[in-house]
C-alpha cells in the first residue's frame, strides 16, 4: 500500500488536466467526449512507459507545471516541446526516462507545439466518471476531482516493474501554419458558392480564447443568410460551424454535444492530432477533399 502520493504538483501550469481516450457513447445524454486532444501523442507516451494506450496521461498546455515525484518511476513526454527538465537538467522527449524518488520535473520555454503529454508507468488511482478519468467539463470538482490539476494537487500511481527503455524518433517540429483536409458539412448547401470559395481561400488565425471546447478562427467574416434557421442537431468532433457573426468555430473534444449553427465542414479524423498542437495566433487553411 502507498500512503505517499506519487505526484505532487508544486505549480499547476496554465491548463493541466488528466486525460485518456475520453467518454464515447454518452453524447445522447449531453456528455461531451473529452479525452486527450492529441490522441496519438498520448498513446505513444503510454507505450514508452509500458502502459495500456488508454491509460490516463497528463495533458500540459503551453506553460508546464512543477511536479515533485515522490517515488522512483519511469516517465515519458511526447507532444509539444516545453523544455522538460528534471532537477534542472534537460531530459529527452520520446523515450523512457527513469526518475529518482524526490526529483522535481519542471518545464521551461515553449519550443514548438501546444500540448505536451506526460505518461507515468504504473497503475493510476484516480476517480473516473463514465469509465474515463478525463477532466469533466462541468461539475469537475464533483465528477473528476483529481483530473483538473491545481497547486498542491496529488496523484497516486503504483509503479509497475521498470521496462527496458523504449524510444521513438521525435516527429519533425510542429508547423505554425497548416493546411487541414475537410469534408463538406451537413449545411454546406446553405452557403453560396462565393461564401464557400471565401472560406477555402482564406488563412485563419486561431483566436486567443480558443480552448479544448473549440477554436475560434479569425478572418474576414463570411456573409451568409443567418435567417435560414438550423434546428439544434448533433455535433461530431472536428465540426466547423459558422457563427451568426460569420466566424468559423472548430469544435474540439470538450465541445457540447449539440449545436444550432450551420455546419459548413468537418475535418478528417486524422487531422485532429495536428490541430491539437496549434497555438493561439497560429494559422490554418482548409482544403476540400469531398
Amino acid at each position: 500500500m502507498y500512503n505517499s502520493s506519487t505526484l505532487h504538483f508544486l505549480k499547476a501550469g496554465l491548463w493541466t488536466t488528466v486525460q485518456d481516450q475520453g467518454r464515447i457513447g454518452h453524447q445522447a445524454s449531453g456528455v461531451p467526449v473529452s479525452g486527450a486532444m492529441d490522441q496519438g501523442a498520448a498513446q505513444l507516451a503510454n507505450w514508452l512507459v509500458g502502459n495500456d494506450k488508454n491509460n490516463p496521461v497528463i495533458e500540459i498546455t503551453l506553460l508546464g507545471p512543477s511536479i515533485q515525484i515522490n517515488q522512483a518511476v519511469q516517465i515519458a513526454i511526447t507532444g509539444a516541446n516545453l523544455s522538460p527538465k528534471v532537477d534542472n537538467v534537460p531530459i529527452p522527449m520520446y523515450e523512457t526516462v527513469a526518475i529518482e524518488k524526490g526529483a522535481i520535473l519542471k518545464f521551461g520555454r515553449i519550443q514548438n507545439g501546444c500540448r505536451a503529454y506526460l505518461a507515468v508507468g504504473g497503475q493510476w488511482f484516480i476517480q473516473k466518471w463514465l469509465a474515463s478519468a478525463s477532466a469533466a467539463t462541468t461539475s469537475t470538482a464533483k465528477l473528476t476531482p483529481d483530473s483538473l490539476i491545481k497547486k498542491d494537487s496529488l496523484l497516486t500511481i503504483q509503479a509497475t516493474p521498470f521496462i527496458e527503455k523504449r524510444s521513438t524518433p521525435a516527429p519533425p517540429d510542429y508547423e505554425s501554419a497548416i493546411v487541414v483536409k475537410v469534408l463538406s458539412g451537413p449545411e454546406f448547401s446553405h452557403f453560396s458558392s462565393q461564401t464557400i470559395a471565401h472560406f477555402f481561400s482564406q488563412t485563419y488565425t486561431i483566436a486567443n480564447d480558443s480552448n479544448r471546447m473549440g477554436y475560434r478562427l479569425l478572418g474576414k467574416e463570411l456573409s451568409f443568410d443567418s435567417k435560414q434557421e438550423v434546428i439544434s442537431s448533433g455535433i461530431v468532433l472536428g465540426t466547423i460551424q459558422i457563427s451568426n457573426a460569420g466566424q468559423p468555430i472548430l469544435l474540439m473534444r470538450d465541445a457540447q454535444t449539440t449545436g444550432g449553427y450551420p455546419r459548413i465542414a468537418v475535418v478528417l479524423p486524422e487531422e485532429l492530432d495536428r490541430l491539437a498542437q496549434l497555438k493561439p495566433g497560429e494559422k490554418i487553411r482548409f482544403c476540400f477533399v469531398g
Binding site: I24, Q27, S233, G234, T258
Partner: peptide, 26 residues
C-alpha cells in the same frame, strides 16, 4: 429509430445523438 438502432447492438456503432428532428450516428 434511435431505439431500434441501439437494440440491434451493432458493435461498430460507437454513439448516437438523437435531437429534435435528426439522428447523428458515430
Amino acid at each position: 429509430l434511435n431505439k431500434a438502432i441501439l437494440a440491434a447492438q451493432l458493435s461498430g456503432i460507437t454513439y448516437t445523438i438523437p435531437t429534435y428532428c435528426s439522428l447523428t450516428i458515430g
